[in-house]
Nucleic acid binder design. Structure first.
Lengths: 155, 155
DNA sequence: GTCATTTATTAATCTACATTAAGGCATAAG
DNA sequence: CTTATGCCTTAATGTAGATTAATAAATGAC
């Protein structure tokens, strides 16, 4: 359990890594993402200040996701065992967020997803490139542009 | 921790329930699902023999999902605390399955999803109605019919 | 058994989003 | 300064899957 500083762009975990850690974000921003068979990135979660970012895997299992820093970030690196015992509820919340994402991807239109996103992460919209928000929403950057234009016109 | 028999169609957990349990399936089939704002069902997971079905929520939090039996089922009902301590890795596997579903929904076409489904659950295809498989895949029953027709023609 | 209800299939049409391509703004590098 | 590189936006075109509707098959109630 140690305090670490990482630079924007630094990769903390790669798919396949063993003995992965959990990261509690003190300041900055992390993301976790997967790369599909076609080589496309899909963002799973953003973790701003106060969040814990941890791969879901067990000790023996290789990591399923990549984790990197979208901003210079200060974090506490923890052994997962410690997380398991003491921070269970935070990890469980993470599972809930994932469930909400499945519902969203199955039922909501691009506009609805975007509106939900800015409710959930009002500050992050300004902090990450549009194409990453598109990736999180499961749409193309072009479609996101259109959504935002309609969004503005509505007001 | 007790052995229970439930009939097909019986609901084990409703959204909003408190003090929810975890269920280890001995025989039969459970499913968990959500109902979106438009009233549509979206299936999250099927749990056949050997699986543990548990809502992701913490003790204080109300349940996010419904759980019901798709077949007459025999199961072991457990306190979640017991699950947390002794069956962590099974719950973690569940999180991994959910992650795979997010990737699938973001990147795979209807045909790819269906092919992946029959690989993952070769036996369940015959055990549940088509419309539930469609719900799990995030497509309409009509689209699933078309996919299956193309699937047959390919061979 | 009959009748009612739910489910699955097929086809015709529609639409949300993807794809492609082009142009405008940045930031960084020489 | 100029040029290159990456990102965002806009518009035109294409397409996978949704929607609608009609028919058939299966399931369940009585």
């Amino acid at each position: 359990m140690k305090r670490i500083q990482v630079k924007k762009g630094q990769i903390l975990q790669r798919k396949g890594d063993l003995h992965t850690k959990a990261y509690e974000v003190k300041s900055g921003l992390l993301r976790s993402y997967a790369i599909d068979e076609k080589g496309k990135e899909h963002i799973f979660l953003f973790a701003p200040e106060g969040w814990i970012m941890a791969d879901s895997n067990d000790y023996d299992q290789p990591a399923a996701l990549f984790i990197d820093a979208l901003e210079d970030t200060i974090l506490i690196e923890k052994e997962k065992l410690a997380v398991k015992v003491h921070e269970m509820s935070k990890l469980i919340k993470r599972l809930n967020v994932l469930q909400q994402r499945v519902i969203m991807l199955m039922s909501a239109s691009a506009i609805e997803r975007y509106e939900h996103f800015i409710e959930t992460y009002p500050d992050i919209v300004q902090r990450v490139p549009q194409r990453m928000i598109a990736s999180y929403l499961g749409i193309t950057p072009e479609a996101l542009s259109t959504v935002k234009r309609q969004q503005v016109l509505k007001k």
